[in-house]
Design a protein around this nucleic acid. Sequence first.
DNA 1: CTGATCTTTGCAATTGAGTTGCATTACAAA
DNA 2: TTTGTAATGCAACTCAATTGCAAAGATCAG
Lengths: 137, 137
Amino acid sequence: MTIHEKRLQSRDIQPTAMRMRILLFMAETKSVISLSDLEEKFTHADRTTLYRTLKTFLEHGLVHQINDASGITKYALCSENCTCSYPDDVHVHFYCFSCEQTFCFPHLGIPNYDLPENFTPSNGNFVITGSCPSCSS
Amino acid sequence: MTIHEKRLQSRDIQPTAMRMRILLFMAETKSVISLSDLEEKFTHADRTTLYRTLKTFLEHGLVHQINDASGITKYALCSENCTCSYPDDVHVHFYCFSCEQTFCFPHLGIPNYDLPENFTPSNGNFVITGSCPSCSS
DNA sequence: CTGATCTTTGCAATTGAGTTGCATTACAAA
DNA sequence: TTTGTAATGCAACTCAATTGCAAAGATCAG
Ligand SMILES: [Mn+2]
Ligand SMILES: [Mn+2]
Ligand SMILES: [Zn+2]
Ligand SMILES: [Zn+2]
């Protein structure tokens, strides 16, 4: 059994061939991706399958979702020990308005905000927009 | 000349009747709104006009834009002295997954993050998702 | 192995937010 | 008033996201 197969099973996701390939792709690119990115990579697979795979991964806490200024939903693999809990597992992301890439900054956590009375947090989305190294020169 | 008329002119926005009405609505509701919210309020006006009004307001720094987990673009009036600069004028927002309302927390600023080399920030979008007071009971 | 059952995948169609082109109207300067 | 510019309205379009249903594949009891 491969490391990726174990990873899926540890999150109670049936390790189908399709899911294995998508997980492998996300693991080796190490970047934040969108559904369209998967479509470009897996031209043989159907858009719906890719969509539902991401949805399954999300629901089982294998990936986290990022809403950046592009309006397109992005996804990134969670770290091995991530439980997607707030605020500990929530971190900063960066969206480059020039190349439209999004980056994970897992080392940049978020403050434990003191919210107004009776606001109960469960998750967070923190995105800084600007210019990435490739586009800043 | 009304206070709202002055406010538009101070941001170099021609104070048309439509814009005045929209600004007034946003000021008195004091909440974060979407294009659809404007459509519901101003049933006589055209969707495009409302859309372009928000766009104009945004471009002239009268409102700021919020990307929450709903995937729908939200807008909120800037404070009087806001220049929409990062990180000083960027603050936390709260999205209630239950009633799908979004709230401004202007008193909750964001840290001045130390980004990786050559990442140049220009703006930020910080949204905490959870349950609001009305939906927490 | 066989048939029943559940899950996954593929295909087609739909929704809805966002956006654009162009004609018309309102406004403001000359 | 005339003329130019800006704002508005109407219609159409783009595209990400989503859903229903059928086909294919996996799982399990007998
Ligand atoms: Mn991340
Ligand atoms: Mn705000
Ligand atoms: Zn870039
Ligand atoms: Zn609520």
